[in-house]
Computed example of a mutant assay.
Amino acid sequence: MNALVLYGGIALGLIALLVLVFLVIAPPAPRVALERRRAPGAVQVSTLSRVTDRTVEAIDGVISKRTNPLFGAAELERAGIRMSPPSFVLMVICTSVVFAALGVLLGSGTPWLIPLLLTFAVLPLLGAKLLLGVRAGRRRTAFAEQLDDALTLLAGSLRAGHSLLRAIDGVSQETDSPIAEEFARVVNETRIGRDLGDALAGTAERMRSDDFQWVAQAIAINREVGGNLAEVLDQVAHTIRERNQIRRQVKALSAEGKISAIVLILLPIAVFAFLLLIQPGYFAGLFSSIIGVIALVVAGILLVLGALWMMAVVKVKF
């Protein structure tokens, strides 16, 4: 098995070398451009593109039947990823296949073949889920940080005589992402017939922002009873600015506890992996006896419980 893997690696290396030499370093002489050899209006679709399109359609058919897909359109929107769910799922599946092959190469000829295969195949799924969560969290944080300035700009546009929708459109053109993207989406949804209050409420729900929920409610109330909307938005912006200041202060005060929790969680795992790598026989007694296996399982459970406890303690909800 090891010899087969070695020969396969050598063959792949030689193929890569040939591709590098004959297609990159010394490419063939240029010929007539492909666009000139095609008939006007003809669209040439490669076999790979056709296979990819059919695969995406099959994945889309499977996702459409699920009420709660693993990677839904709303989750991708919150993370700011401009990909359709079937395309994103296909990318994750391809990455899982590549990682699974890497696990097979690393564990070939050892009893760790199946565990490494399964572990490396699951890693892209967990990584994609973690990536979406991290990107969505950063996008919500940036939205909250930009909201007070956007409201000040919106109030200024209203004082200058612009309508509310025109003022929102102006904010979408003058601010950065994600405020610009969300306000532009509100304008586009309103233009195709959606009520402005519903569009603003949808943005607040999508971004999970209580502050913007206040803005949507203030605008909805003003549209019903009238009044000086610019002054209302100024007051809301002032309140949000003070809340952001307190939020930053709380974040700074809790940073030390969060770092301590991360270190205490990762330190046992890092030490265990380091010793297992440089001296595998050090833990032979734990893996060879039932008591040792039970001890490892109990240690893992306690580590997970301790991690959940510490993360709950250092997480300040504001």
Rank of each mutant, 00 (worst) to 15 (best):
3 A>W: 11
12 L>V: 15
14 L>M: 15
20 L>K: 02
22 F>R: 05
24 V>L: 06
29 A>T: 08
32 V>N: 09
32 V>Q: 11
33 A>K: 13
34 L>D: 12
38 R>V: 15
44 Q>E: 14
45 V>E: 10
47 T>C: 12
48 L>T: 08
51 V>K: 05
52 T>L: 10
53 D>K: 07
56 V>I: 08
58 A>I: 04
59 I>N: 02
63 I>Q: 04
64 S>H: 01
65 K>D: 02
66 R>S: 05
66 R>L: 08
69 P>I: 00
74 A>E: 14
74 A>M: 10
75 E>S: 11
77 E>T: 00
77 E>S: 04
78 R>S: 09
78 R>Y: 01
83 M>N: 06
89 V>L: 11
90 L>V: 07
102 L>R: 05
103 G>H: 04
105 L>V: 13
106 L>D: 01
107 G>Q: 05
107 G>R: 03
108 S>I: 12
110 T>V: 11
112 W>A: 07
114 I>C: 05
115 P>G: 08
117 L>Q: 01
126 L>T: 14
127 G>K: 03
129 K>W: 07
131 L>A: 11
131 L>M: 13
132 L>N: 00
141 T>R: 14
151 L>R: 08
157 S>K: 09
157 S>L: 13
157 S>A: 15
159 R>A: 14
162 H>V: 11
164 L>N: 07
169 D>R: 12
176 D>R: 15
176 D>P: 07
178 P>D: 07
179 I>W: 08
182 E>K: 10
185 R>S: 14
187 V>P: 04
188 N>L: 14
197 G>D: 10
200 L>S: 01
208 R>K: 15
209 S>K: 07
211 D>R: 00
211 D>W: 00
212 F>C: 05
217 Q>W: 01
220 A>H: 02
221 I>N: 05
223 R>E: 05
225 V>D: 01
232 V>W: 02
236 V>R: 03
238 H>I: 04
238 H>N: 12
238 H>D: 15
240 I>C: 01
241 R>Y: 09
242 E>C: 09
248 R>P: 07
254 S>N: 13
258 K>H: 07
261 A>F: 11
271 V>D: 02
271 V>I: 15
273 A>F: 14
275 L>K: 02
277 L>W: 11
277 L>P: 00
280 P>G: 04
280 P>K: 05
289 S>Q: 12
293 V>I: 09
298 V>C: 02
302 L>F: 12
304 V>Y: 13
304 V>F: 14
308 L>H: 11
310 M>K: 09
310 M>S: 14
313 V>D: 08
314 V>W: 03
314 V>R: 04
315 K>C: 05
316 V>T: 08
316 V>S: 06
317 K>G: 02
